[in-house]
């Protein structure tokens, strides 16, 4: 467990010291600013309410969950594996007293921590912007629903991260991994349009599952089905990703 903890801490420090993490924070804040400017423009220009303080954070989540969050997840996941293969720095960690399963798990845990930090950052700032600049429509219930919507967006993003990590261990080049991941993401989104009955099965469609928690009466059967599907995807992608990582020679 000490080796896992040491690796996790190292990964978090590396993320913190890289410019990508800072860029992600800045872009996330810019999205909130742009969203707020848009809402204010609609309100004062067209006389339409746009979004109240309760709706604004959900509006932001719906905008980022299929755009910048998967993008940053991909960049961080690729950097954590393909980036270190390219620099040969993975070898430095592999020759420390840490097993490959602990190293692999700690890297994924650090990616999860990064995604969670991004979600919390977006949540806090969108809530603040919602309260300061928009109509006060928020209630305790709507705020708690918003918090839940942000937090439960972590598992589908982690499923996506596990898929990208698998690709990073299957392909040699980080750029190939990035473009293949983008192509697969778009392809799955398109498939969901053409085969709406099978939407729930696709990893990319699960990104929108936070909508199930915005309803007053939670559809428990659908939520359970989504949890099982995500667990299945996550387990498969983790196992295959680790298999490829474990077989790698340096």
């Amino acid at each position: 467990m000490d080796a896992f903890r040491a690796t996790f801490r190292n990964e978090i420090i590396k993320l913190y010291k890289k410019k990508k993490a800072i860029a992600a924070v800045i872009i996330s804040l810019l999205v909130i600013v742009a969203g707020q400017l848009l809402i204010s423009g609609v309100r004062y220009g067209l006389g339409i309410r746009g979004a109240g303080s309760a709706d604004f954070p959900i509006l932001i989540l719906s905008a980022v969950i299929n755009t910048i969050l998967p993008l940053f997840t991909a960049l961080v996941a690729i950097d954590s594996f393909s980036g270190e293969y390219a620099q040969n720095s993975m070898r430095v960690t592999l020759t420390r007293p840490v097993s490959r399963i602990k190293l692999f798990s700690a890297k994924l845990a650090a990616i999860a921590a990064f995604i969670l930090a991004m979600l919390l950052l977006l949540l806090v700032f969108s809530l603040l912007a919602g309260f300061i600049f928009n109509d006060h429509s928020a209630t305790a219930a709507s705020v708690s629903r918003t918090v839940i919507a942000y937090l439960i967006s972590l598992p589908p993003l982690m499923g996506l991260a596990a898929g990208i990590v698998l690709l990073a261990n299957a392909l040699k080049n980080g750029i190939s991994v990035f473009f293949l991941a983008v192509l697969l993401f778009i392809a799955l989104k398109m498939l969901a349009l053409f085969f709406p009955h099978y939407t729930a099965l696709f990893l990319t469609s699960q990104l929108d599952w936070y909508n199930l928690f915005l309803i007053d009466q939670w559809p428990l059967a659908r939520i359970l089905r989504q949890i099982l599907l995500m667990t299945g995807w996550g387990a498969m992608l983790f196992i295959v990703g680790f298999y490829l990582f474990d077989k790698k020679e340096f």
């Binding site: 801490r9 420090i13 010291k17 890289k18 620099q87 040969n88 070898r91 430095v92 020759t95 420390r96």
Partner: peptide
């Protein structure tokens, strides 16, 4: 590996961390 220190082929380090930070990364193990 708890008993081993090694340098294989080329000395690799994280280019975005200082020499001290690189050693701190490895010291945690």
């Amino acid at each position: 590996m708890a008993q081993v220190g090694c340098l294989i082929e080329t000395a690799e380090s994280y280019p975005f961390l200082s020499a001290g930070d690189n050693l701190r990364q490895w010291a945690r193990y």
